[in-house]
């Protein structure tokens, strides 16, 4: 699963045009068009138009309550689980498939679009059970296959060396950073195409954060990653593109470097320079 044509990091650093929303050189994976999203009668997202690249890291930034997490949760339809949450207009497409098409199954979707949460949430089962959970519920029970996936996933999450001798201990016995990487390993075990990360480092100390960020760099070779973050440094460090949201609207979307060095919108500039948020 080696990527052959991955462009160098930050290679595309010159804005191609004055328009904020520009497809990069990579192929487009996710298309969001005219999305209006509501919690009951309260509108949370206003007319979002966004094209996200395949096998890139895209960061969603913005102050609390700006709708970035909401948009993220739209992408694997986790919002279906919230009472009253609904899309009023617009569409989300992954590889051209509308996520709300009638024959689309949210369960199948979530197998292909994984998610890592703000607070690491390993199940109170063994590390092994945690990783294999996703496969077991799909009916995979072949021991050899499971063993293989466990090793591969843990290696993929850079956790293998730390836990290989205690695979049958509880996932809760790990440290905070390890727990979060376990959750990432759990997610990649089901081989999704996209990994959504909802502020994955907000509860971690700087060292653990650095490890997760390193991991993100590795992962983007295989996965498309969308990360919601509060930390602008994190967005700058590990994303290729950045989208800035404010009050439920997409204000600016561009290459990360552009957003941070040369933002096209005064609001973006005020935010990234730390004047509010």
């Amino acid at each position: 699963m080696e990527t052959s044509a991955a462009p160098a990091k930050f290679s595309v650093n010159v804005p191609a045009s004055s328009s904020a929303i520009t497809p990069g050189t990579a192929s487009t994976l996710i298309e969001i068009e005219n999305l209006d999203f509501y919690y009951d009668s309260k509108q949370a997202l206003f007319d979002i138009n966004l094209k996200l690249d395949d096998r890139r890291v895209t960061a969603f930034i913005g102050p609390s309550g700006c709708g970035k997490s909401t948009l993220l949760r739209c992408l694997n339809r986790m919002n279906d689980l919230i009472d009253g949450a609904h899309i009023k207009r617009g569409s989300l497409k992954i590889r051209g498939v509308d996520l709300h098409r009638k024959d689309v199954d949210a369960i199948e979707l979530r197998k292909r679009v994984g998610m890592v949460f703000q607070k690491s949430n390993p199940f109170p089962k063994s590390i092994y059970e945690n990783i294999t959970y996703g496969l077991r519920i799909q009916g995979v029970n072949n021991k050899a296959r499971l063993d293989e996936v466990v090793e591969k996933s843990l290696r993929g999450a850079a956790l293998w060396d730390e836990v290989k001798d205690r695979l049958h201990e509880s996932g809760l016995s790990l440290s905070g950073g390890q727990q979060q990487r376990l959750c990432i390993a759990r997610t990649i075990a089901v081989e999704p195409e996209v990994i959504l990360m909802d502020e994955p480092c907000s509860a971690l100390d700087p060292i653990a954060t650095a490890k997760v960020e390193e991991l993100i760099h590795e992962l983007k070779k295989q996965f498309t990653i969308i990360i919601v973050t509060h930390s602008m440094q994190q967005a700058a460090r590990c994303s290729d593109k950045t989208a800035f949201f404010y009050m439920g609207k997409l204000i600016e979307y561009d290459d990360t470097r552009t957003i941070f060095m040369n933002p096209g919108n005064p609001q973006t500039e005020a935010y990234v320079s730390g004047r509010f948020g």
């Binding site: 694997n76 986790m78 689980l81 369960i107 199948e108 979707l109 979530r110 197998k111 292909r112 994984g114 998610m115 949460f117 607070k119 949430n121 390993p122 199940f123 109170p124 959970y133 996703g134 519920i137 799909q138 959750c183 759990r186 997610t187 089901v190």
Partner: peptide
């Protein structure tokens, strides 16, 4: 905790699973 449910659902488990 809610995390147990979300974590599981995000892995593609059905509600009943």
């Amino acid at each position: 905790p809610k995390g147990f449910r979300e974590g599981s659902l995000a892995l593609g488990a059905t509600k009943w699973q």
